[in-house]
Simulated scan of single mutants.
Amino acid sequence: MLTVVSDTHGTDGHRLRGRTLEAVRAADRVIHAGDFYREPVLDAFLAENESLFGVVGNNDDAAIRKRLPRERIVAYEGVTFAVRHRSRSGATGLVMFGRERDADVVVFGHSHRPEFDDSADLPLLNPGSHAQPRGNRAAHAELEPDPDGVGLVGRLVTTDGEVFRRFTVDPRDD
Rank of each mutant, 00 (worst) to 15 (best):
M1E: 08
L2G: 00
T3K: 10
H9T: 07
H9F: 09
G10S: 10
G10Q: 07
D12H: 12
D12V: 14
G13T: 12
H14T: 09
R15D: 10
L16W: 00
L16D: 01
R17K: 13
G18S: 05
T20P: 03
L21N: 02
E22P: 06
A26Y: 02
A27K: 05
D28C: 05
I31F: 12
H32K: 02
A33F: 08
F36M: 11
F36D: 07
Y37M: 08
V41R: 10
L42Y: 13
D43S: 11
D43W: 11
A44T: 03
A44C: 05
F45D: 04
F45A: 08
L46I: 02
L46M: 10
E48Y: 11
N49S: 02
F53N: 15
F53Y: 15
G54R: 08
G54H: 09
V56T: 15
V56M: 08
G57D: 12
G57Y: 11
N58C: 06
N59K: 07
D61E: 13
D61R: 04
A63P: 04
I64S: 07
I64C: 11
I64F: 06
I64V: 15
R65N: 10
K66F: 09
R67T: 13
L68C: 09
E71A: 15
R72P: 07
A75V: 03
A75E: 15
A75N: 09
Y76M: 09
G78I: 05
A82R: 07
A82D: 04
V83H: 08
R84I: 12
H85C: 13
H85A: 09
R86F: 14
S87H: 10
S87T: 11
S89T: 15
A91E: 13
L94G: 12
R101V: 13
V105D: 07
V105R: 08
V106N: 05
V106E: 02
F108L: 13
G109C: 15
G109R: 14
H110E: 14
S111P: 13
S111F: 04
S111G: 03
S111K: 01
H112D: 09
E115N: 11
F116L: 09
D117Y: 11
A120D: 14
A120P: 02
A120T: 15
D121A: 10
L125W: 08
N126D: 15
H130Q: 03
A131F: 03
A131G: 13
Q132W: 09
Q132C: 08
R134V: 04
R134E: 04
G135E: 06
N136I: 07
H140C: 10
A141Y: 00
E142M: 00
E142G: 00
P147H: 04
D148N: 10
V150Q: 14
G151L: 01
V153W: 06
G154K: 02
G154T: 01
L156N: 00
L156C: 01
V157M: 07
T158P: 00
D160S: 05
V163T: 00
F164V: 00
R166L: 09
T168N: 04
D170Q: 15
P171S: 12
D173N: 14
D174Q: 13
